[in-house]
Design a protein around this nucleic acid. Sequence first.
DNA 1: CTGAAAGCGCTTACAG
DNA 2: CTGAAAGCGCTTACAG
Lengths: 338, 338
Amino acid sequence: MTRRPGRMRPSSGATITDVAQAAGVSRATVSRVMNGRPTVDAAIAERVRRVVDELGYKPSRVAQSLSLGRTSTVGVIVPDLGNPSFQQILHGVNRSAAAAGYRVLVADSAETPDDEPALIEDVRRRTDAVIVCSPRMNADTLAALLPRVQPIALVNRDEPVDAPRVVVDSGAGVAEMCRHLIGLGHRRIVHLDGPVGSNAQAARLRGLTAIGEEHPEVELVRLPCGSTIDEGHAVFDQARATGSTAIIGFNDLVALGVLEAARDRGVRVPRDLSVVGFDDIPFARLSSPALTTMSVDLEEVGETAWRALEARMKGEEEDGPRVFAPVLVPRASVDPVA
Amino acid sequence: MTRRPGRMRPSSGATITDVAQAAGVSRATVSRVMNGRPTVDAAIAERVRRVVDELGYKPSRVAQSLSLGRTSTVGVIVPDLGNPSFQQILHGVNRSAAAAGYRVLVADSAETPDDEPALIEDVRRRTDAVIVCSPRMNADTLAALLPRVQPIALVNRDEPVDAPRVVVDSGAGVAEMCRHLIGLGHRRIVHLDGPVGSNAQAARLRGLTAIGEEHPEVELVRLPCGSTIDEGHAVFDQARATGSTAIIGFNDLVALGVLEAARDRGVRVPRDLSVVGFDDIPFARLSSPALTTMSVDLEEVGETAWRALEARMKGEEEDGPRVFAPVLVPRASVDPVA
DNA sequence: CTGAAAGCGCTTACAG
DNA sequence: CTGAAAGCGCTTACAG
């Protein structure tokens, strides 16, 4: 099957010099033709184009990048490429960036949470700008990093910093969800906490605290968990043991894991137990029962991050963070308590 | 909130020349220090390092790329970044490529199916190599493209070509699923076809044809559909009208859409109707009923594609395509027929 | 051990 | 309208 003997030159390709020689013109002229500058004699342009076709010449992007001082590439750094939420954000960024003539370089900080800054710097050096999603690094580290990697846009960081930001109002979201549950009679609710140190988790805490003050009659318990299906699955028994009538997953993945564990244990949702998530990933409506959740359009978050970054690159001033307010999507995983 | 007046220089950064001047050495020496060449006097190296720190110097990746003739970046082109299957492949590629010191540039050909070749060429010019997933272009176009974009690895293309390939044996997979269904007594089965012209769809056809010959007593009907939840949802009534006792979705997404439609219509799965998918995406086991499907580890497909590409870049010869055989995962969405 | 010089493949004032 | 030349920021033989 398809053996090529010997070494393989990476399809080296013709350079602008090859074209210039073959066409008997200067490289400047070739460059002008390639870039559609109108100031080239029609006959010469035609001749150059023919040679370009014959040789299959394509300008080197990296040479252009060095010469022009820009790569037309934007970096996107996420904590976990396997997480549907970040996949959606990536999708949104890619769509709008592509429409603007940019390509997307992705990176996943999962393997190297401590090296977030180094990773971001590395990605930034290969691109014109970066979008960083839910960075876990602390505020000081972030502040020290920012000036080195401008232009940069941040997704889900609450501190005011010198960078455009788009944030999902997780605190308000969890509070709204709590009120929904409380309105249905739930008096003991367990919240499955997300990754420690994550911005979203901190926001949840604020939301829960606010609800605690607003509803002293309600018992709000918290359990360390995480952000994956497996973590949600694993924490189920513990959550159940709290005697709560409702479980709030840090995100839909966690809630889906809880749902699966409930099925394994023969606990009926929502009759025996209400379960809710956060994010409204595409599968939330397909679970059984369909998951009640707080919806946020993460593709639009991605698109917005791109637009904010683009504006910054053009030197426009931003007027504060772009805030997405999650909206409650009641489905079938919640029952009132008797 | 964080106003920066005026224009923003993209945090221009010091160049190697700045460092050389400040340290009173040549650029060559700075380069040597940066790259850890041992032949530099310790005191000088130390001085250079101090200046590097003070100036916050980071070598320009694009200058390095031009000089070295490689970018340490690999391109990944998928038909749809919103599709979990491709997200998994991307995740797998990224993981293994990152481990090898490469970054990943992604592109989505969704908006421009006719420009697949142009897209691939563009991505290739910014990277050292590309991995192309499920390209839709025809064989001639592909053959003409390949020499222009080597090294390239192909995922899910069946034709033997001069490029490493990893393929999921969709034909064998759908055949095995059919046999499973037939063994349970199903005699009329409808297959929801995937994107026309896709490699996987062609393979399915071959699998179905084989089954047709193997089991003349079974009626195999096909319906044009697609590869998304919504398309699966939309085709449900039509599929139901065929009077089939089992529906095979082109992939899990389609099957999930069918499941949702069945729920909407009050059709009980699997009692009234069996439904199966393909791929075993992470959510297949979480649907209700849990989806019976053909499982293929798509992250591993991505990793394998990377390794095949890496081998090719090193000039190693491949010995035929790497084939993944999907394995049947019986879950709860299939019942025997009386 | 170190530096001057050439080179990677482009683009773009600047002259003509 | 066209070309010679400088420049983008690196790396690396080649001398010394």
